[in-house]
Every structure is written in structure tokens, then in C-alpha cells.
Design a protein around this nucleic acid. Structure first.
Lengths: 283, 283
DNA sequence: AGCTCTTATGAATCATTGA
DNA sequence: GTCAATGATTCATAAGAGC
């Protein structure tokens, strides 16, 4: 089956079995959370979530290339206490063979605070990275960020100490050499992603902002690679892939979203093509 | 046994059995993480961590008042993949009767140095809140933060810099300059705490900043209540409690830290007493 | 007060070697 | 094989002092 730049209408549990093995460079997805989005997906109950997910992740493991990553954006809800199906899912995926390489935090920076009697507004979600082993593709330079404003002042005059490696006072074994930072304009980020959530998308009930898949696509795939989203929704992952010169592939169970996704991706492709032809023939 | 304003030298697994039931308003602690602090604590291996912790948490459950909270600051390490003992601990604590009410994130705005091929610097830790039921004490107003410059900055960053950077920690409400908040509108925070891990305590290998326990003490206890830390280390939790007009109680296994903690708490008490007499007799 | 400059600081991770 | 010990490598920022 040709999966490149295709969106399939149907259930991932079925469709993915037809994907060839070792064919995808990166999987990024935000699956339907438990008990949410009942109207659109029927809502998987928390106690059945893991058993529902495992057959799908088994196919994902088969489909993913050896040096690829599987990024799962998810957050358990709360009903008095936090649900535990995400913890159980992590443990179950490990038993299935996945490496739980890292947990990135998506810190949702902009929504105005709200509150309930027992808890504050939930401002973060998990972005779980699973791989097939210790070694995988990671292009850290692709996601460097501009250095903080402090740097301008700091770099003007380097003191004597700054040109020498100085031991940390606590003997933690670290040191610093400020001289190395001269002329530095970008720095590496950490494992907390600060991205504002999209609040006004009425087409899909749980959109995530394009910047979220875009960050992982830059970090964990190369140009020309294939990025799969088995719950593609309104097509956000595919749009990000197109804009970053990757191929997309996806599955969607809901007919309406399937159609919206196809339309959105077509738009992204046209915009992309237009910008390229503009560059080639600027007049 | 009188536990109020006492620090005990010994193993929590033993000492806590002597604490009276329903006697403590809040438990805040940062236990030794697995396989860390080997020199001072011997280091608990990841596969034995849960069985080591459960007898202690059983006593904590007995000791905590019905409307109290148990806040556990912890973060698993990585060796290729993330360790899973924290996930297993959450599940085990629930089986022990605890409610897993919330997971707060401590976002460390300046985190440990380092660079590796397969991960970025770890900038966050878990602050797990457990309770004995759905109802518990929570004084949300006590941790409100000012809106103003902070909000303006956010908006500005949004348009200018794609929100890759956050407002600095000093704008986030953890500083002490509360008097500067006059005339500023305050809002409720969210469940991500932005605190730099700086502290001036060179005596302990794993201090957390005072602002972290202070935030939870303000939020989950009242003045005059008792705050327990079963792994009190150099006494940070007790110091925060003293400064906020709560009583402290704690246990420490390591003799050196036990002595340091006692000394630090005495200092905090003296400072407190001095500041009170100053207020009463300003001349 | 604000600016500039100086100093301080933190629960680390991975690859390799040896038992 | 696994497990443990050892060694090599490595940032970005906050806060205070001084003018």
C-alpha cells in the first residue's frame, strides 16, 4: 500500500495493519483522551483505554523505522482525583517493547487562569517520547531558540574568571566557561515546551497548536521523511509536516474530520507550492 | 509523643510509628530519589524503591488529618530511558488508600548543565499531591499572583518571539516583595510552578528552594497548623513553615543533616522573633 | 532608580571499562 | 550475559554589587 501523503478514512486498528513495516520516520499524535470528545469518538472509558490502545501501538511499533520516535501527546483528566490510565499505558507500552525515552512537558502559556475548588487550571500536558532503542535520530540544532536578553549585557566584557573553567562551588563536578558563549545567538532548549494553545478552532474538538508537532518533526525527522499521525483529526500534524518539507500520512475515524483534514492539507500544499514558485520566479 | 516543633534523628519507618494519628495538617517532602545521594543515604535501587516507601507512606496516611495533603516532590532519572519507579509508586500509593489528587509541575527555570545526543536538559520535577479523600483544605487566595507587567510581557512575547520564552521567575509570584503588589490586580496561578532551584545552602546535597514548600504550605495549611517533613534534610520545609507561622515537625536519618537542620531552624526562629519584636517596637 | 558589570549556582547523563 | 564503578563531558541564567 502506498502510504505517502495519504489520509485514510477508517479505524487505525484496521488501517495500520496494511502499512508496510519500517516505513515511517516519526509518529506524532494526540489520540482521543479517555471520556472526552464523547460526541465525536464515542469516548473510550478509562479502564478500557489501555486495551484499546495496545493493538494500535503494536502496529505502530512495526511500522516505525528503527531510528524513529513515537511522540504521544496526552493528559489524563480529573474527577476528584487524576485518572491513572496514562501511567498504566506507559507501563504497558514498555512491556510491548517500546523504550520510554523521555517525557516532555507542553506548558500551555497563554490561557488566562481559571479555577475550581480543588485545583487550579491545568496548564500542562504530557508529550511522551517512545523509541525502539537507545539510539534514534535527534537533530537538536533544528530547535535552537534565541538566547535570552541577559546575554547582550553579559557578553560585553568578559572577566578574568570567564576565560577559565571555573569549578562549581558545591563540587557538583560542573564548571562553566563563559568565553565559549561569545558570539552565541541561539541556545538549546530544555524539555519544557512553552507553546500557546489554540483556543478558537471549531472544526475539531481537540486541536493542538501546529507548533507542537512542528517542534517534534524538526527534532526527530529529516526532510523528505514520512510523519504519521494515526489520529489525524483536522490534519494539524500533516500541515506541519508539509510546511517542513516532510511527507505526511494519517488515519481518521470520523468522516467529518477526515474531510476537513483532506481540505486543510490541500490548502497547506497549495500555499507551499505558491511560496515555492514565488521564490523561483519572484516576478 | 509531642511532635510539635521537633526534629527527630532516626529512620522515618521507625520514628513515624510513634506519631499520633490525625495529628498533622500537611506533609511536604522531597525524599531521596532512587540511586542518588549514595554517599549520604546509601541510595535505594529503583526496583526496591516502592517497597521501601510504602511502610513510610502507610504511617503518613495514619498521621495526616482528614483534610490534609501529602505533597511529594520527586523526579525519576534517565539511563537511556526514564526510570518507572515513580509511576509504580503512584499506583501503589493509590492501592494504599491515597487519592492522587493532582500533579503539579515544578518548572526549574535554570536547570542543571549538560548536553547529550539523545535528550535535552531536564527542567522539571513532579510535585504529586495526595489526599485522603475528595475534600481537603485549599486556600487558593493565599497564592494569588499579580497581573500587570507580567501579563503585558506575555502578550508582547507572544507577538514578537513566538512565545519561546517565559516571564522570569521574579515575575511569577514566588519572590517576597508582596508589598510591591499594592494596586495590582491578582489572579490565581495554574498548576505549573516556575521557581529557580537556587538556594544558598551549601550544607546539603539536594536542597530544594524554600519557595517550593512555602507555596504548598500557604496553599494547603493554615496558620498554627503542623507541617511534617519525614525526610527533612537541612530543614528547608521547617524553615518555610516557621516563616509562615506554622509549626514544623520532621525526621532525618543522616546525623550531620540532622544537626544542620536543627541549627538552621533555630536561626529561622530567631530571625522570626527579631522581626516580630521589631514590628512591635519599631524604635 | 536604573544601568552596568561581577559572581554564583544547580537531585546530570552516557559510554566505557572491569568484575 | 548483567551489574557496578569510573571517567568524560557539559548551560543558561539569576541576583547582587557598585556606580
Amino acid at each position: 500500500m502506498d502510504i505517502k501523503n495519504q489520509i485514510f478514512y477508517g479505524d487505525s486498528a484496521d488501517i495500520l495493519t496494511k502499512y508496510p513495516s519500517n516505513s515511517v520516520d516519526l509518529i506524532v499524535t494526540s489520540p482521543p483522551y479517555s471520556n472526552r470528545r464523547k460526541r465525536s469518538y464515542g469516548g473510550i472509558s478509562p479502564d478500557r483505554y489501555v486495551e484499546w490502545f495496545l493493538p494500535i501501538s503494536k502496529e505502530l511499533y512495526r511500522i516505525l523505522k528503527q531510528d524513529g520516535s513515537f511522540v504521544l501527546n496526552i493528559k489524563e483528566g480529573a474527577n476528584g482525583e487524576r485518572e491513572i490510565y496514562v501511567l498504566e499505558l506507559i507501563l504497558a507500552l514498555r512491556k510491548q517493547g517500546w523504550y520510554w525515552t523521555e517525557e516532555y512537558i507542553w506548558y500551555k502559556t497563554t490561557c488566562m487562569p481559571g479555577k475550581w475548588p480543588n485545583r487550579f487550571r491545568d496548564a500542562w500536558e504530557r508529550c511522551l517520547q517512545f523509541t525502539k532503542g537507545r539510539k534514534f535520530r535527534m537533530n537538536q540544532r533544528a530547535v535552537k531558540i534565541p538566547i535570552g536578553n541577559w546575554a547582550k549585557k553579559r557578553m560585553k566584557n568578559l572577566s578574568e574568571n570567564d576565560t577559565v573553567r571555573t569549578a562549581s562551588a558545591t563540587n557538583s563536578g560542573f564548571g562553566r566557561k563563559v568565553e565559549n558563549w561569545a558570539n552565541k545567538r541561539t541556545v538549546y532548549p530544555d524539555n519544557v515546551l512553552k507553546i500557546a494553545p489554540v483556543c478558537k478552532n471549531h472544526n475539531h474538538s481537540a486541536v493542538y497548536p501546529k507548533e507542537l508537532p512542528a517542534w517534534f518533526i524538526k527534532l526527530f525527522s529529516k526532510r523528505g521523511g514520512i510523519v504519521l499521525d494515526p489520529f489525524i483529526g483536522s490534519g494539524t500534524t500533516a500541515i506541519a509536516a508539509v510546511e517542513l518539507d516532510r511527507h505526511y500520512s494519517g488515519v481518521e475515524l470520523n468522516k467529518t474530520y477526515y474531510q476537513i483534514a483532506k481540505k486543510n492539507v490541500q490548502n497547506a500544499l497549495h500555499t507551499k507550492a505558491a511560496s515555492i514558485s514565488t521564490i523561483k520566479a519572484p516576478r
